[in-house]
């Protein structure tokens, strides 16, 4: 007789249980484990460990290589995100004006984002090769010294940034195009009558404010994406030359899977997750409150 209300009360939990279990197993569980491991001295293969508190973090923040990878990651983000954003927005505006060719351009720009990263990076390696690559040929034409851009301390990280921009600009274009086509034509017509008929006045009065939410979304997404840079470093530079392309995720990988220092790798992961988590929180808070005006 009393079973029915109990069943009703339990039903929501039963229905959400599979998702909760999976989330716990593959998301929350591992994060908790990593967090815990970052406070221990456990290394892969060992049977015992002890709690060391903040020791791993202290080691990390006094390690020159880690600090270098932090700086490199930040520098990489600064190089890629604004450029991708600007090229994405300009590209989207141009494509929207292109009429019949619109779909073709959209597809062409989006292809790098859809392709397999490793395959494309191998192509890039060939393109950038100083003797047999396209870069070598161009350098020869202009009588330049065909330096190996990926083996040069000053050019390696900017080149990786360039590849990332090439790869992500199509993604930004698609999102911006969606945002731009959401602006009612009447806004521009009202603007034209109000006196905003130049390219800049139209952009500052109407376009830019009305796609602010898209811009912010793309900005966060690109930042998180840049934070996660790994494939290009692993395939093209392996962190070199002279640690010039050592980035957070690659350092984490080396610590965990080359040196088996799981505790240090865990601490780096926590630092990484904190950064990404902060961005996601900012996005959630800001996007809902400030940018969303309708």
């Amino acid at each position: 007789m009393h079973l029915r209300p109990l069943y009703n009360r339990l039903l929501p939990y039963l229905l959400s249980a599979p998702a909760l279990v999976l989330m716990f197993l593959f998301l929350i569980g591992p994060i908790m484990a990593v967090l815990f491991l970052s406070f221990t001295d456990w290394q892969l293969g060992e049977t015992a460990f002890r709690i060391t508190g903040l020791e791993n973090y202290l080691t990390l923040f006094s390690d020159e290589l880690f600090l270098r990878s932090m700086r490199n990651t930040a520098f990489y983000i600064v190089m890629t995100v604004p450029t991708t954003l600007i090229f994405g927005l300009v590209g989207a505006m141009l494509i929207l004006q292109s009429g019949a060719m619109r779909k073709l351009y959209q597809t062409i720009y989006f292809l790098p984002f859809m392709g397999t990263a490793v395959a494309m990076l191998i192509v890039w390696e060939f393109v950038l090769h100083p003797t047999i690559g396209v870069w070598g040929m161009i350098a020869q034409w202009f009588n330049l010294d065909p330096v190996n851009l990926l083996r040069n301390e000053h050019t390696a990280l900017p080149i990786l940034a360039l590849i990332s921009i090439w790869q992500n600009v199509g993604f930004a274009i698609v999102l911006f195009m969606a945002g731009l086509s959401g602006i009612p034509e009447e806004m521009y017509e009202a603007g034209a009558l109000d006196g905003a008929d130049g390219v800049f006045s139209k952009f500052s009065l109407i376009t830019w404010p009305l796609i602010s939410h898209v811009t912010f979304f793309v900005f966060i997404l690109l930042t998180v994406h840049s934070f996660q840079i790994f494939e290009s470093v692993a395939v093209l530079t392996k962190g070199g030359p002279n640690d010039a392309t050592e980035v957070l995720t690659y350092t984490m990988y080396k610590e965990g899977f080359d040196y088996f220092r799981t505790n240090i790798a865990s601490a780096i992961t926590v630092v990484f997750l904190t950064g990404v988590g902060a961005l996601v929180l900012i996005k959630a808070a800001w996007l809902e409150k400030k940018v969303h005006y309708q």
């Binding site: 034209a192 009558l193 109000d194 602010s212």
Partner: peptide, 29 residues
């Protein structure tokens, strides 16, 4: 061009700038 004609238009959808306040909307022209 429209802005050099001494005409004003009220649109069916009003076409107010959603990100601007009423004051700013009225001040734009």
């Amino acid at each position: 061009p429209p802005k050099q004609r001494s005409v004003s238009m009220v649109f069916q959808s009003y076409a107010l700038y959603p990100h601007l306040t009423v004051f700013e909307n009225m001040a734009v022209p």
